[in-house]
Design a binder for these strands. Structure first.
Lengths: 137, 137
DNA sequence: TTTAATGCAAACTGTTTGCAGCTCT
DNA sequence: AGAGCTGCAAACAGTTTGCATTAAA
C-alpha cells in the first residue's frame, strides 16, 4: 500500500508538499531538520512552503511513517521510520546516523529493573554517539 | 577541589546564580531545561535571572561539570556530569524518576556495533519510560 | 579597586496558528 | 462541489546579545 492509499484511507490527500517531503526523507541518509528539508525542496525546484513542511512532518509522524530523533546539536531531526523498533548511532562531528535494531541486550536489564522498582517499562530511548569512520581523524 | 576553587583557578567567580544552578542540578533526578532550572530557583526564593541560567549552563558545560542531553520532548536538558554514568527510568504519568547505572548489558551491543559500522562509540543516552507502581491503575 | 558577572531589554531564530484562497478526490 | 490543504503573515516561545550596574576577589 502506497502513501496515497494510506492517506485516502483516512480521508486525507496526497499533495505536492507531502510527496516532496516524503521523497526527500526517502533519499536522506541523515536526520533532516524541517528547514533542511525545505531547503532541499527548493533546490529541487519544488516550490513548497516551510509551513507545509512542518505540518507534513507532524502528519507523517503521527501516521508512524516518519520518526523524530534528537541529534546532539540539531534538536529536531526527522528520519523515515523503517519498520520495527530501532535506535540511532550518530556521529558527533558530521551528524551522519546509522540505524540499528538489536536491543535484545536490554531485555535482562529491563526485567531486572521492573522487578527492583515495581515500574512497568514499555518504551525506551537509546541513542549512541561517537565518530563515524570518516571523522575519526 | 570544590566549585569555588575550580572557578577561581581560571579567574572566574562563584556567584549566587552559579551556586544556585549547581545545587539544583545536584539535586535533580531528571534532565532539566534552562527554564525548569530557573523555575526551581524562583521556587526556592533564589532570585536569579533566566539569562544567568543560560550563561551558567554554558560555562558549566564547557568546564565539563554538566552535560547536555536531549530528552524526548524537551530538547535541551542538562544533567550533572556525575562521575560514572547513569540513566533514568521515568514514569510517563507522574514524571517520577528512578536512577540506575547498570549498563554492562550494553557493552556487547556497543562492541558489535563498533565492529559492524566502523564508528567509535563513546557516549550513550538511555532513557526508559513506563509507569511507576502508583500510576499503574 | 578592579574586572567579572548580573539582569534588563531588545534582537533573533525556530515553530505554531488564523485565515482567505486553492486543489485534490 | 466540497472538504482538505496551502501559503502568507502575524503571533509565539525559547535563546542570545548589548550595555549599564552590581559585586566577588
Amino acid at each position: 500500500m502506497d502513501l496515497q492509499d494510506k492517506l485516502n484511507q483516512k480521508g486525507l490527500r496526497l499533495t505536492k508538499p507531502r510527496q516532496v517531503v516524503m521523497t526527500i526523507l526517502e533519499r536522506a541518509t541523515v536526520p533532516l531538520s524541517p528547514q533542511a528539508i525545505h531547503q532541499h525542496a527548493i533546490e529541487n525546484q519544488a516550490d513548497i512552503g516551510l509551513v507545509s513542511v512542518y505540518r507534513t512532518l507532524e502528519l507523517l509522524t503521527t501516521m508512524g511513517l516518519v520518526r523524530r530523533v534528537h541529534g546532539q546539536d540539531s534538536c529536531e531531526g526527522y528520519v523515515l521510520a523503517s519498520p520495527g523498533h530501532h535506535h540511532h548511532l550518530v556521529c558527533r562531528t558530521c551528524d551522519r546516523a546509522v540505524e540499528f535494531t538489536g536491543t535484545d541486550n536490554l531485555i535482562p536489564l529491563l526485567e531486572q529493573l521492573q522487578h527492583e522498582t515495581g515500574f512497568t517499562v514499555d518504551e525506551h530511548l537509546l541513542q549512541l554517539y561517537g565518530l563515524c569512520p570518516d571523522c575519526q581523524n
